[in-house]
Design a binder for these strands. Sequence first.
DNA 1: GGTACCTGGAA
DNA 2: ATTCCAGGTAC
Length: 227
Amino acid sequence: MDINQFIEKFKQIETKGFVKSMRRGPTGIGMTLESLLGIKENNISLPDLDGIELKAHRDNSMNLITLFTFNRGAWIMNPLEAVRKYGTLDKNGRLGLYFTMNFTPNSAGLYLFADNEAVSVRHINGDVLVKWNFNDLEDQFKRKVPALIIAYARTEYRGNDEYFQFYKAVLLKGTTKDIIRESIKNNIILIDLRLHDKGTMARNHGTGFRIYEKNLPLVFSNTEVIA
DNA sequence: GGTACCTGGAA
DNA sequence: ATTCCAGGTAC
C-alpha cells in the first residue's frame, strides 16, 4: 500500500465513526487499524506501508511510542538471569524488568552507559546486562522507521468493549540514520526494558526504543497532516 | 519451547 | 513525567 492508497482508505475509516476494537487490551487500536486498512498482522521488522511505518495512538494517552524493538545479539547476561537478579515483583507476583532507562541509576541500580560505539544497560555493581552498538541501532532505525504515519483516535467504552474513532493522520519524514545516536544520548529516544520471569524463560516483549509523541519532530524534519 | 519481533497501554 | 505493564506471531 502506498501513501495515496493509505489516505483514501483512512478517510473512509474516518467516516465510520466509532468502531469496535477487534482485540482486547492495549494493542487493540493498532490491530484494528491495520485490519480496517486490510493490512495483515505480522512480526516483520519492516515498515507497514511502502517505506512508511504506521502507528496508532489513543487521544489523551501520554504514553511512549515504540519506534522499534531490538534484542538480537544484544544481551550480554542471560535475560532470565538478569530478571532474577535485578527484577522487581510486578502486580502478578512475577519478577520483571520493566524499566524506562536513564543515565542515572534507577531503584534497581540499573543505568545506561554510552560511549562512541555503544549504549548499554549496566548495574552499579559492574554487570553489563545488554549492549547495543550504535551502528546496529542506526541500521534498525532506518530500516524500520524511514518515515512514520501516526493515526489518532478518540476512544470510548461501551460496557467492556472499547471503541475507536480515527480522525487524523500525520506523516513524519526526513530522518537521518545518525540522528539516533544523539537522540539516545540526549534521552529523546528512550530505552524501555520489558521482560519478566515466566518460569523457565524470560518472556520478553522486546526492548523498546521509544519516544514521546511531542518529541517526534526531533527525529523527523518534516511533519504533515495528511488525513 | 524459547527468542525476537510485532502491536500498544494505565495509574 | 515516572513506574510499571498488555496481547499477538514467525521461526
